[in-house]
Amino acid sequence: MKQRRKERIDRGTKARSDDIFALTSYREMLYVAVPPVLPVIALLVMPLILPPYWQKVLLQTTIFALLAISWDFLVSVGMVSLGQALFFGMGAYVAGCLDHYAGLPIWLTIPLATVFGGALCTVLLLPVLRLRGVYFSMVTLVLPLMLERIIEATGMLGGTEGLTGIKPFGNSWVEMYVVIIVLLIALFGFRRLVTTDYGLVLKAIKDNDRSVMSAGINIYWMKAQALFISGSVGSFCGAYITHVYMFVGMPDFALDYSILPLASAVVGGMGTFAGSVMGAFILVPLSEALRNVGGLRIVLYAMSLVVFIVLLPEGIFHYIQRKYQQFERWVEVEG
């Protein structure tokens, strides 16, 4: 029986730029340079040309892209988190408290909240580092919801009212570009990190943690470090948004901050970070654009999510990358 099978062949330029790096013309250099450079330029130019409302959407999108990156990083170490809201809310509250109670300036609250927020999240999750798979996920899902209820019940840190009157950035250009530059650093930083020896060890934990342990590596210490890195990125997002909205409160632990980053990374394509960013830049503006639709907004949104995942389960980024780097043709094979 004859069967048809898709054959994939690397494009010449891709092969030559992979490890031997023998590029011979401007055309080939462009082929290699355009994919990373074009989005960077687009991201830097966008605030200059977008109307004010869409600038706010861009800001939101960038935050969700960062959260998606931090989610994607944890997954690559084998920890599937359903609670990026924990990281986000923790950063938001640390920054809010440092501003409200200690009166620290904004250029101190955000870095401090980034580090301490990440550290607090790591400490909170330390007892469950040994849990694997869905057990770890369940705990991460529950923790932010629990913290939210604790604040509601005890009325501490502003209780249900939250803390208001947090200092704003003051300059909207600074506000916009701070988060864009952090996103670019995170994107290229994480892409670099996972190819270092340290990153390889982290990824190996996901593949086979027993084998990593028999190599004399303390996987719990490595996982804690990964949690700290991911938690810090999430905490930065929370701290930043606290200063943008000049408010910190219970909504900072909302489920949105857990689910949307996850959806972005899955739709965009996991394991590349670029996919996470791409996913966020599709889903967040889409959700805004659907606002005009009214009542059916959530239905349409959910349907488009399903369409993305069913049509491109590998993720949009992986799909585009494949099309860009490889020829495809149908060949007949003996079945």
Binding site: D197, Y198, L200, K203, D207, N208, S211, V212, I217
Partner: peptide
């Protein structure tokens, strides 16, 4: 169960990193 996605020699990075 090797670290399947990594090239063979990169598998040794893990014990070498200990």
């Amino acid at each position: 169960r090797p670290f399947a996605e990594l090239p063979a020699f990169k598998n040794l990075i893990i014990p070498l990193f200990s």
